[in-house]
């Protein structure tokens, strides 16, 4: 799904003493098929932004195009159900939305609301369960008997069932332990690649943005302050620090390495082993030179 924001602003409780500008003149373009990361700390306007993707909020001014859908302040979003069908949102702590008696019913809840036929639901279910790594044996259990991590996978399965064109992930790893976080992100990365859909990841983790995203947006105080490929954006350590963000550890280390040894190792996604090899070369050369 091709996404275009043009001068989008959102003001909460306009014309009251509580007026609050959550988004200010935000413009960007996310081409279909890309994996974009939106980064910013709490209160930067990220949550407000993502609620525009499926029409939960309308801009107070500006224009949004989500694929064929147009969202503006004045117009009612035509076929909002259709938009929500095609934009899957995994909210923060999505396990909090579970309510059905069984896992199966909960996974089918969204698809049924959106009018998916039972045949289609049945044929998609095994595939979706596999991609979120849930055993079929859990289907008849109550979602409230599962572990936190499993509950989250159930909620995600419900979203994937719609096979949305755009998948919006709001801090999907919050509260998981390191291993759970890695598994979760690897799963989304796999799902993204398999289906050629557009994925938007909202995160605090610079490491995740670096590892998974091919485009990064930095938000601060309701404004879009930086954008570019992760490598471009994370080169600007100082600018990031100014908005209260740190660069990923690996880049920070490479910057420090460069200023200490006078030789740069440009980061292009090398593994730690590869970087160690490059560093070793430089360090050894030093030993030989002297």
């Amino acid at each position: 799904m091709d996404i275009l924001f043009e001068n989008v602003s959102h003001i909460y409780q306009k014309n009251t003493p509580f007026e609050f500008k959550a988004l200010e003149e935000v413009s960007f373009h996310i081409p279909a098929g890309s994996f974009a990361a939106i980064i910013g700390h709490t209160g930067s306007g990220k949550s407000t932004l993502i609620q525009h993707f499926n029409g939960l909020l309308k801009p107070t001014s500006g224009h949004i195009r989500m694929g064929d859908f147009n969202i503006t302040a004045e117009k009612k979003v035509k076929d909002i159900m259709d938009l929500r069908k095609r934009v899957g949102v995994v909210f923060q702590y999505p396990e909090h939305q579970l309510f059905e008696e069984t896992v199966e019913k909960d996974i089918q809840f969204g698809p049924k609301n959106f009018g998916l036929s039972q045949d289609k639901i049945d044929s998609r279910l095994p595939e979706v369960l596999k991609s979120v790594n849930l055993p079929e044996g859990l289907l008849s259990r109550s979602p409230f008997d599962l572990s936190g991590g499993q509950m989250r996978r159930v909620a995600i399965a419900g979203v994937l069932m719609m096979s949305p064109d755009l998948l919006v992930l709001d801090e999907p790893t919050a509260g998981l332990d390191p291993r759970g976080q890695k598994e979760m992100m690897d799963m989304f990365s796999r799902v993204h690649k398999e289906t050629q859909r557009t994925t938007i990841l909202v995160t605090h983790s610079m490491e995740d943005a670096l590892k998974y995203a091919d485009y990064v947006f930095i938000m601060n105080h309701g404004k879009l302050v930086m954008e570019g490929t992760p490598l471009e954006v994370f080169q600007k350590e100082e600018a990031l620090n100014q908005v209260g963000l740190a660069v990923p550890e690996v880049i920070k280390f490479l910057h420090a390495f460069e200023s200490r040894f006078g030789q740069s190792i440009p980061f292009k996604g090398q593994s730690i082993q590869e970087l160690a090899k490059e560093m070793t070369e430089i360090v050894r050369r030093g030993v030989k030179d002297e």
Partner: peptide, 30 residues
């Protein structure tokens, strides 16, 4: 939660009284 369920296709605003009452369940249980 109401936003999360709206994203899952729950319509809190339109429909008959019966439909709207039914829409409250996914909100109340969580």
């Amino acid at each position: 939660i109401s936003k999360a369920q709206a994203s899952r296709g729950v319509d809190f605003r339109t429909g008959t009284i019966k439909e709207r009452l039914k829409a409250v369940v996914p909100l109340l249980v969580p």
